[in-house]
Write a protein that binds this DNA or RNA. Structure first.
Lengths: 332, 332
DNA sequence: ACACTCCAAGAAATCGGTTTCGTCAATAGT
DNA sequence: ACTATTGACGAAACCGATTTCTTGGAGTGT
């Protein structure tokens, strides 16, 4: 690969001048032409590693997400990339598998790679980002809270749970269950709290929430399947269900379909999007999480910090948008 | 961030010795201890940028895919990452949007970032990877062919199309249509050729393939929707359909569901996986493309090249595995 | 006891850019 | 006409590792 020295030699100038041409500093028009010609001729591309070592920064942003196979996170990644791209930054996507050790490893890499900043969907509340913040590298949390004093972009999970549940009652269902993720994860707890809040007010139990109507499962497709199967096996099964994320929604719908039940017959509201649902998209109530927007917003905040913004840490809370599914014909 | 010089000063040795300790060269046990203690105390992490500038390589692999939001490519990415991870490499995921310009940009970045190698799902047949190959950086093509003489990992697309179509005839359907992607893309052309081959032999047209039974659409969900709607509107509609990828399959199934038709009633075979199908996974015939395996295989080949393997370019062709969907009760 | 080998470890070069510093010439000001 | 100012541009330092070269001291053989 050609270096700046070879370009300088060919153009008959010093390496410093070549650098100045590349970076738009003051150089006489005639030397600019000489350097451009030489660079062209040698097919010169500046070595980013060398540039980075000197500048102590790069146009690289790390994005740490728990799972690239989850459409929610890929949509988020898309948002980050679009925004970063247009600002001349590239995005390095890293899978943490919700494993704090992997997360720490990637954070260290981001640091020692001199990346410009990090957008993090944290796997735990107390990740160690001191290495980065010590060096003034901005970190933005997205989708999940940390105990740290950093910028963050969140979704109003409680409101999302409330919206999903209310929509089912509005559609005429009365026995609304909930398929929630494991205990101890804030996002699912908040969403199921939203469910609980609505059910205790509008449910048929006079303010009492049936404990068997909330199922905790792992938050993946198989978890949703198991939970839905359990709900259908109850003595007094529900007539509708809220799932606190997209994947469990998929599992629940699969089990329903296997039992010969199709949505308006049994109400389903999903907190999250089902981009690859094989049902008609408007058969199901979806609380669309603004995944992509979450990404662009986080990227924006990060880019502002990279540009030198030093205002105190901000938290932006975005709201989800509901699309109402079909309503059951009999109840009309 | 602490540097090797500060560690050296604290330990009372030279920077060279610190480097030797870090890289396992011969150093007396007592100095090893001194250096380790100093490094620990300063919370030292070696600067990868500096290391990379000197070594002219890094433990970074670029993976260029057309679309992170497509589950096929995320599964592939997962495979690459798993393999890379276990060999101590990190993966940089880049979206090309099937845009040759973006692809070229990322290839240049991979080059000037001194990345160890590139795995590429090429957007066109004639991408320019000379910058990389000139510097002896291995490139492996995956999923799609290039005109270049490099390692590649492919799927037997023709066989996949044949398998999908045959499975529908085996299940008792007789008027099998095909929803294919746009003309000119090898993967979809091959798969639809497989369909044509089976239909001309087993279809009800005595070797003649009805031209209206092959619909070309864009290869996304909306394309599948449009194509399925067109098929249903025919005077003599098909009783089953093959789609040449996962996303068009989703679209087709949505339209069927909206028309009140559920799979065993109308045969659907998808070349590709439907990880988020809301139907029971075994209601539909799927030709499972080994996406993840494609990724691990490509990563393996790349790692071998990085390690110095210089044998002539290889092409590995993987085969898809069929899972038969439910068969229509009436035809039994 | 003396020459020779061997090995640990420091000094210095290196990777390829960017940037500071200093020089020299051209222009402006009085 | 002579000094002050400005601007282009080369020389050299710098970023933080790794590695070659070199040196000095310990160990070995006769």
């Amino acid at each position: 690969m050609a270096t700046i020295y070879e370009v300088a030699a060919l153009a008959g100038v010093s390496p410093a001048t070549v650098s100045r041409v590349l970076n738009g500093a003051a150089v006489s028009p005639e030397k600019v032409r000489l350097v451009r010609d030489a660079a062209e001729q040698l097919n010169f591309t500046p070595n980013r590693t060398a540039r980075r070592l000197r500048n102590q920064t790069s146009e690289l942003i790390a994005l740490l997400i728990p799972d690239v196979e989850n459409p929610f996170f890929t949509a988020l990644a898309r948002g980050v990339e679009d925004r970063a791209q247009s600002a001349g930054f590239s995005v390095v996507l890293c899978n943490t598998d919700d494993d704090p050790a992997k997360e720490t490893r990637y954070l260290d890499i981001a640091n020692s790679e001199n990346m410009a900043g990090v957008i993090l969907a944290p796997s735990s509340e107390d990740g160690d980002i001191r290495h980065l913040t010590d060096r003034n590298r901005p970190v933005v949390a997205v989708d999940r809270n940390t105990g740290l004093n950093i910028d963050s972009v969140m979704v109003d999970n409680r409101a999302a749970g409330i919206a999903a549940t209310s929509a089912l009652f509005d559609a005429g269902y009365s026995r609304v269950a909930c398929i929630a993720g494991p205990l101890g994860l804030e996002w699912t707890e908040e969403r199921s709290l939203g469910w609980r809040q609505v059910v205790s007010r509008r449910g048929d139990g006079d303010g009492v929430v049936r404990p068997e109507y909330i199922q905790h499962a792992n938050y993946r497709v198989d978890g949703g399947r198991a939970a839905m199967a359990a709900l259908l096996a109850l003595d007094n099964p529900p007539d509708a269900v809220v799932t606190t994320n997209n994947l469990m929604g998929v599992g629940a719908l699969q089990v329903l379909s296997e039992a010969g039940i199709t949505p308006p017959e049994f109400g389903v509201a999903v907190v999250g999007d089902l981009p690859f649902s094989t049902l008609s998209p408007d058969a199901i109530t979806q609380v669309h999480l603004p995944a992509r927007h979450l990404g662009t917003t986080a990227a924006n905040m990060l880019l502002e910090r990279i540009a030198g913004d030093t205002q105190p840490a901000r938290t932006v809370v975005l709201r989800a948008a509901l699309t109402q599914g079909a309503t059951p014909a009999v109840r009309r």
